[in-house]
């Protein structure tokens, strides 16, 4: 009888843990959306942030977030996929591979603020790119690279061995087999991983504090010349992203509606990330279905 009681008790407690976790998610997302939704409006999304008056928007921050994400992916995707190919297909079990694996482990466990400090040291100060989109994107590349390498390696490893053999048996070189057989077969997995990592990059803030900066120059959205200092496309201008903005309005801003702006921006951020999550899953499944013809 006694063991039965303990059994029921423990199962109840374990269930409580699970309910608590699900509750946290619902509470968190629900609270942010509830608080922020009333503040999201077309005007909020399309007007400039204000330095000390109420009623500022997040247009530039939203644009900066997506633009930095884009530039980051531009660097990470080729590098990360190449790294994944190396780990899955070329790495022999030797010291160098072990070292490479350790490097990836270190990169993936570095706190993002450390990555930001490194970015400040090298990109901002040493290369004199100042607080800029380029510095920020490069720091985020360091931050995101191990994830992409891992995603790509796992996706390639999950391609059945007989695909590799059939490519080689048909007289394809190893490189051709990778490029034309293995990568396409691994594509759904890589795509899902890429989009999920994009969500992570999109929400990252600490690494950007010292690399992309806390301010945005007055952007002229009619000027698309990437060299102009007020062009949205200029990669050498400083750029405050959405998540950095959330932190900044809470930490040291004097606008009277800081809370509302923060909630509104957080709701937009969470919505974007949910969107990334859902689209990653749907796109991956869609591509897979198309490939297998089922």
């Amino acid at each position: 009888m006694n063991s039965n009681k303990a059994n029921r008790m423990s199962i109840f407690l374990i269930t409580c843990c699970a309910v608590l976790m699900a509750g946290i998610l619902l509470g968190l997302v629900g609270y942010i959306l509830y608080q922020g939704f009333s503040h999201i409006s077309l005007r909020f999304l399309t007007s400039d942030a204000s330095a000390f008056l109420a009623g500022g928007g997040i247009k530039n921050q939203l644009w900066n977030s997506f633009y930095i994400l884009f530039i980051t992916m531009l660097f990470t995707v080729p590098l990360g996929i190449a790294g994944g190919i190396y780990m899955a297909e070329y790495a022999k079990p030797n010291k160098l591979t072990g070292f490479m694996r350790s490097c990836l482990e270190v990169l993936s466990s570095l706190p993002s603020i450390i990555v930001g400090m490194f970015g400040m040291l090298v990109f901002v100060n040493f290369f004199h790119w100042e607080y800029s989109i380029l510095s920020g994107a490069l720091a985020l590349t360091v931050f995101n690279l191990p994830v992409i390498v891992r995603v790509c390696e796992d996706a390639l490893r999950s391609v059945p061995q007989d695909q590799r053999l059939s490519g080689l048996a048909l007289g394809l070189t190893k490189w051709h087999t990778i490029k034309k057989v293995l990568l396409p077969a691994a594509f759904p997995g890589i795509l899902t991983g890429l989009i999920l990592s994009a969500g992570r990059v999109f929400g990252e803030s600490a690494a950007l504090l010292f690399t992309a900066g806390l301010s945005t120059p007055n952007l002229d959205f009619t000027n698309w010349n990437p060299l102009a200092p007020n062009s949205p496309l200029n990669v050498f201008r400083s750029a405050e992203t959405l998540s950095v903005h959330i932190w900044a309005v809470n930490a040291d801003s004097i606008i009277p509606d800081a809370k509302q702006v923060a909630y509104g921006a957080a709701a937009v951020l969470v919505l974007c990330i949910l969107l990334f999550n859902v689209s990653a899953r749907c796109l991956g499944r869609l591509v897979e279905r198309k490939m297998t013809g089922k």
Partner: peptide
């Protein structure tokens, strides 16, 4: 070996077409 495998082909136990 690449040229060799074009002249001496191979078919495996499990059918393994490419997902194309």
């Amino acid at each position: 070996v690449v040229a060799l495998r074009k002249e001496i082909g191979m078919v495996f136990q499990k059918p393994n077409p490419f997902p194309k």
